[in-house]
């Protein structure tokens, strides 16, 4: 055997100076604790963008009465006045300050969305995981229920239910929560079926865990990303659907929310008269809220799915190394 220096006769790839941070381009992480997940989340551009918008909105919701004091329903000036220094977003078709309405209405819109998301997700967890864990007859029955709710067209059902139930935000939350849960339930059921076969579930049972703890303390934490995703999606659904109901006049039109602003703008022919300030701002806010939630949703999936991540980092490395070849690169050791 020749004992010689590691010398490579002639390499096809140019030698590469590796920057220090290249050392973190790596193999997909095995399972990780929450701490690492949060760190990865904050490094992701989508999360940062979506998160900033959300944080801003939460701020507004919290301090609404301070940002825009006064009674949002009060008549303050002539109707349909364009934005001015006094009324930042002009006046509505009934002479109310649009800006004040927008800020104060954020509470109802966003909080309704949050509660809808929570209810839909919790219901989805309970039904989906029960069906997935027990299988057999229990699964058959629950699947039928899930499928029935999925098949029923959502909006007509909402309209029908909202039409003869009392007109309160609580009703809206309930109605929307009841139509939103089957999607989550189906996904969680499938995941539970898959996790159920893992040996650590058997190990927990043999150790004496109760069924309740097996489902909620052993299986559920493994589905955290899906649950988070469902929750974010549910909240987005809630915000948009609530606005939709209010716009149709099926909500509580005496309270201010982004949907009711749209409702009144419609009623007062805002579109026809060209009073864009009466409907554009609430529409934008609804869209922005849903958009930011979706941004975060997508990036959570990307982060928790190792396959997606390694593809990204693999491509990044190739680009950085300027190689067009797909064979293992040969690089002289520079250390």
């Amino acid at each position: 055997m020749e004992a010689n220096e590691p010398r490579i006769p002639g390499v096809t790839a140019p030698s590469v100076k590796t920057r220090p941070d290249n050392n973190n381009i790596g193999l997909p992480h095995p399972k990780y604790p929450l701490r690492d997940l949060i760190r990865k989340l904050t490094q992701n551009k989508k999360v940062v963008a979506g998160g900033t918008i959300l944080v801003a909105m939460v701020f507004v919701v919290a301090f609404a009465p301070l940002i825009a004091p006064g009674d949002p329903m009060a008549f303050v000036a002539q109707a349909n006045q364009p934005p001015s220094a006094e009324h930042l977003l002009g006046t509505s078709g009934q002479g109310q300050d649009v800006f004040v309405q927008l800020i104060r209405g954020s509470r109802v819109s966003l909080l309704t969305g949050v509660f809808v998301g929570l209810i839909a997700t919790i219901l989805g967890i309970i039904v989906g995981m029960t069906a997935g864990y027990f299988g057999g007859a229990v699964d058959n029955i629950l699947s039928v229920v899930m499928n029935v709710f999925l098949v029923i067209p959502g909006l007509p059902l909402l309209v029908v239910l909202a039409a003869f139930l009392p007109r309160t935000p609580a009703t809206i939350v309930l109605v929307l929560g009841l139509t939103g849960w089957p999607g989550t339930a189906r996904v969680l059921r499938a995941q539970t079926l898959s996790v159920r076969t893992k040996e650590y579930v058997s190990a927990a049972i043999v150790g004496g865990e109760s069924i309740f703890r097996v489902i909620f303390a052993e299986i559920l934490p493994n589905m955290a990303s899906i649950v988070a995703s469902s929750l974010l999606g549910g909240i987005a659904f809630g915000i948009v659907a609530e606005a939709g109901l209010e716009f149709l006049g099926l909500g509580d039109t005496s309270r201010v929310s982004w949907g009711t602003i749209l409702y009144w703008a419609q009623n007062n022919a805002g579109l026809l008269t060209g009073a864009w300030w009466t409907f554009l701002p609430p529409g934008l806010c609804i869209a922005l809220a849903a958009f930011s939630l979706t941004l975060i949703n997508y990036s959570v999936d990307e982060i928790t799915n190792p396959a997606l991540r390694s593809q990204r980092s693999g491509g990044a490395i190739l680009r950085k190394l300027y190689l067009r070849s797909r064979a293992t690169p040969v690089v002289p050791n520079e250390k």
Partner: peptide, 29 residues
């Protein structure tokens, strides 16, 4: 490595692989 199918972030940093008088590490695609 002998077949050079190892994917990045793996790199060959030294040595040689000779198969019947041909240098595997110098082969083109």
């Amino acid at each position: 490595t002998i077949l050079r199918v190892l994917r990045p972030p793996a790199v060959i940093t030294g040595g040689s692989i000779e198969f019947r008088d041909r240098q595997v590490l110098e082969m083109t695609d």
